[in-house]
Amino acid sequence: MSTPDDKQPVKKISIIVSKGSLDGIYPALIMANGARMEGIEASLFFTFFGLNALANKTLDHLKVSTVGNAALNMAMPMLGLPITMPFPTVVGAIPGVSAFATHLMNKEMEKLDIPPVREFLELISDSGGKIFACKLAMDMFKLKKEDLMDRVDAVLTVGQFYEESAGAGTHILFT
């Protein structure tokens, strides 16, 4: 039986981003921005390689992974070839191929008005979304807060992240 409670709107999403490739990070950014556009609170918690999206030295140079990415096919880097044709891992390993695939994908995203990572984080921050970095991963990668882009709200422990996510209507997603 459906009750009015079943229709409780999503009030907040907390997204944990653990992947550091372009294709690992964009979905989280798109979902967070989309939430804010719907009036849903959003926070992003970057951990492990997800920190690549926050570190000033890496965030403007994120790449599509062309090696060991079984889902990648010849259509995906916008080569216009059939989606059924796998992207050979051997080709993906050739220097420059990942950069080229990334370039093609970035071009396609720009056409859809999807901003580059830095601008996207600024957009989410301006919209009231929160950006957090994982303390443990920071320690592991020897990163300091000043190594991260200026829109990072705080470096949090796992416990603080869960506290931050408190409240009925919050959904926590892991990517």
Binding site: M37, E38, E119, L123, D126, S127
Partner: peptide, 23 residues
Amino acid sequence: IRSMGKSGVVTTKELYDLFPGGP
């Protein structure tokens, strides 16, 4: 939302403040 922020008419922050809950 990106094109609005770049329009020069309104910043992203202002747009969210003016039309809260779905700018």
